[in-house]
Amino acid sequence: MSLAGFLAQLLNGVQYGLLLFLIASGLTLIFGVMGIINLAHGSLFMVGAYVAFLVTRAVGSAWLALPLALLGGAAFGSLLERGLFRHFYRRDHLDQVLLTFALILLFEEARSILVGNDFHSVAVPAIFDFSVPITAGFSYSAYRFVVIGVCLALAVALFFWIERTRMGAIIRAAAEKPEMVDVIGIDARRVHMTVFAVGTALALTAGALAAPLYSVYPGMGDGFLIISFVVVVIGGLGSISGAFWGALLIGLVDTLGKAYVPAVAGLAIYVLMAAVLLWRPTGLFGQRG
């Protein structure tokens, strides 16, 4: 295969990995702080993708879907946390699994009623519908560059927020010793709502960015949810940097695997997960013990 082809696959892998990061970071953050594994996180991604589809159908371009997914996602996440998840933090894991599984069914049913069960492609926003020439024989989709750029910008913002701000420090403290956050006078409910809002906003944004690349279809969140789990496990439960490197690793292995060794590519990421766990049972960036 040509060098140009390899470069294109490499960029595809990075783009896919960064998109996975947007989903996995919310998943791992919500698990790290609230201890809940949100099975419906993939459905939130689907909601974002359908928002892009509906916005495109209404106004002709998916552009507007991005701010809508980000802000609407944050508002929607706050509501979900307040109305539902908040009441399940102290319940046992089975109750939590049932809640989030029921949400998957609800979201799918709502999708079916509101937009039907057809497969829809979503047009790339016209201003980015061209290829960027890289070398003489190689050009690359401008929209994929946009996806890479937006994901990177959000990743940097997320890292800055978590690592450098007071709210970020409170979130890390809550993931470590929730009780002591209350003891120093901080209302943990506000922290939980914020974390859930951000996780949901990122998942919806990932969906909105993904729609022109992967189309929208029933159950589209499931595959992304499972791969995001692999990312979270490889990176270490609760670790944002782990999710970042895990997502890039999975994005590259999956994409390059499918391009060069399609016969075994479907298995590659699971083999990788098993290998990482054998080597480091708590994941690449997981806390030990």
């Binding site: 420090a169 890390r172 403290a173 993931a175 470590e176 010793k177 002591m180």
Partner: peptide, 11 residues
């Protein structure tokens, strides 16, 4: 009950 993963300044 200090936060071990936070810096002293953040604590």
């Amino acid at each position: 009950g200090i936060f071990g993963t936070l810096s002293v300044a953040e604590n």
